[in-house]
Design a binder for these strands. Structure first.
Lengths: 224, 224
DNA sequence: CAATTATTTTACGTATACATTAATAAATTC
DNA sequence: GAATTTATTAATGTATACGTAAAATAATTG
């Protein structure tokens, strides 16, 4: 086993640490925090914290506001619309390219595994597990699309909406339809039907977006 | 007149300064540079330079490679493919949304102006001026699309390909076809024909991409 | 007592010092 | 003489000090 003895720099630890604090909810969306506060919390000096805030700002997770502390970005319904629109478009393109690529059944095993995992989660009524498998499916899909830029944008945006999705996860019906969608998409990719793959995924994403934004609007998007 | 007496921080100056150095070709793609070298060149300490390199890395313009200096990103033909694929897709979506929005002729005057400007540039055989107007057109199109995320991604990617485009600008035929395309797109948006707008722009971008990558491949992508 | 001005506090931006560690050069060994 | 080890160099990562400017507080004035 390769010893991945990576000596992580404080900067990297700061990025990861702040991300964790955000995703765990310890730094709620909309809250303000001083550099020195974060530095103390993470047990390091302000320098690596400052560097971390800059990259997290570039990723859209924070806003640095001179002398008012860094603010954890709060996503509005409009933001969610914008992000989902991009995700829909780029993932659909990835589906198209994945189908074009004529991957073998073996190469598509990642997708198949995720589908199985989602089926199993559904049977056990485990929403969290289903959500993880769903994320893995979408991730793998984009990877198969073969465009690194799309992969980067999508994973960034997924990060941003992860918090919002977590809220609604327990409010929506069990996603049985979703699983059918995924299976149909898998089939289209396997048989190389690019245009179908694109359309199937586009519809899938659009429906999911409508459901999500509806729920968020009803619930005021608190704590996002 | 509002005195925009913005006291730019050294960090911001560093970002702008390094960008200028890159776009002017003083820091060629693929070249390596030490933080201290850049700091001296910009007349400041390493701290703001470091911060600048982080944001420029997030924007894909630099790669920071510990102990080997920051490297100006060199775009390969594959990179160009990836970027253009995303640009094509997102701009086409913007065109779709712009048409849906039923803007008035007045609201579309930005597009119309750019078209006129391109026509004039063509008549005078001024490629540089044409390129500027073309960029303005695309920019305005995306703005009319109304999705801020798309705007951010597109302008970032346009930055990255600007250098490559500059190379080929004088190698390709005068873009008379391009102007026809722009006019047709404008008409589609004006009459609210979203699907046509999308398709027209998609084809326009795809053709431009094929032309560009062909030229770049022939010319080995030097000095990109 | 409201509003303005003066004062104090404090957070940030930046420079700088220094420790760490990778890269390079030198030396040693086989 | 090649290869490995050791020593040196140098660039980075990080902490820290400090000046500056914004916020917050106190003081003053009408």
């Amino acid at each position: 086993m390769i010893q991945e003895l990576k000596v992580k720099s404080q900067s990297i630890k700061a990025v990861e640490g702040i991300r964790d604090l955000i995703f765990s909810g310890e730094l709620p969306a909309g809250s303000d925090h001083l550099e020195s506060e974060l530095a103390e919390r993470l047990g390091m000096s302000r320098t690596p914290v400052r560097e971390a805030t800059l990259v997290l700002e570039a990723q859209g997770l924070l806003e640095v506001r001179p002398r008012r502390g860094v603010r954890v970005s709060a996503l509005t319904v409009t933001d969610m619309h914008e992000i989902y629109e991009v995700l829909t478009e780029l993932e659909s393109l990835a589906a198209f390219r994945a189908a074009e690529a004529r991957y073998s059944k073996d190469q598509l095993s990642g997708l198949a595994d995720s589908i199985k995992e989602m089926d199993a989660s559904l049977k056990e009524n485990d929403r969290e597990r289903w959500a993880r498998a769903d994320a893995a499916f979408h991730d793998e899909l984009v990877r198969l699309g073969g465009n690194g830029r799309i992969l980067a944008i999508v994973s960034n945006f997924n990060d941003q909406v992860r918090r919002a999705r977590a809220i609604t996860l327990h409010m929506r019906p069990m996603p049985t339809k979703s699983n059918k969608d995924h299976r149909a998409l898998y089939e289209a990719i396997l048989r190389g039907d690019a245009e179908s793959a694109r359309k199937l995924h586009w519809r899938h994403r659009t429906e999911a977006r409508e459901l999500l934004t509806e729920l968020l609007e009803k619930n005021g998007l608190r704590r996002v």
